[in-house]
Simulated scan of single mutants.
Amino acid sequence: MIQQIYPCVPHHYRYELNKDFQFAAAHYIPDEAAGKCARLHGHTYFANVTVGGDQLDETGFLVNFSEIKKLIHDRFDHTSLNEHTDLFHERSAESYPTTENVARIMAELVQQYLDNKGNGAECLQIFLRETPTSYVVYRPKAGRA
């Protein structure tokens, strides 16, 4: 994986966890205004998930790195994002699988998992690179997805 420097998220937590991974996925944006992106095409996405918190769990983890990877990589790798109709649909632009929306959905999935852990950890940032020259940074408002 390419070693990258990600934008820092100001926070007050004692621990900050960052997990990098990549996944290959196809998508299309269901709007003719999207130009070429309205046709099915694929990317090798590079993602960084940033989690913050003060309390470690019973195993000494803020969150296990492998759990973060499972939430995103195992769900999206080698799929068509448009086929994840529980997350993306064609009814509104807020639900198209654009890089912006994929990053937001990733943050929501991570936060749902963290909320169930009960140690107060928060998803602080998703950095999602779609191509070598294009990426999105998503930060939940007020520390929430």
Rank of each mutant, 00 (worst) to 15 (best):
V51E: 02
F23Q: 05
N48S: 11
D86H: 10
I126V: 12
R14Q: 15
P30H: 03
G118V: 13
V102S: 05
A24K: 15
R14T: 14
E32P: 11
C8Q: 13
P10N: 02
Q125G: 11
P97F: 05
H43D: 07
L81P: 00
V137E: 05
A93Q: 08
I105Q: 06
D74T: 13
A38Q: 12
K117L: 15
V137N: 02
Q4T: 03
S95M: 12
A145M: 00
V51L: 11
K117Y: 12
F21Y: 10
H27G: 00
D54M: 13
H27A: 00
D20I: 02
L114P: 00
R39E: 09
C37K: 01
F65S: 07
G118E: 04
R129K: 14
C123E: 05
I68V: 14
P140S: 11
G42S: 10
L109W: 00
T99P: 00
G52C: 10
A145W: 00
T85Y: 04
T99H: 04
F88D: 07
R144V: 15
Y113A: 07
L56V: 08
R39K: 08
E83R: 13
F61C: 10
H41N: 08
K70H: 08
Y138D: 04
S134Q: 15
G60H: 09
H89Y: 02
L124T: 06
G35D: 07
A24W: 15
I68H: 00
R139F: 04
D57H: 02
K36I: 07
H11F: 12
R75W: 04
G118P: 04
T59K: 11
A47D: 08
I68F: 01
H73Y: 15
Q3M: 05
I72A: 01
V49S: 04
P97D: 08
V9L: 10
T98V: 06
R75H: 09
A33Q: 12
Y96L: 07
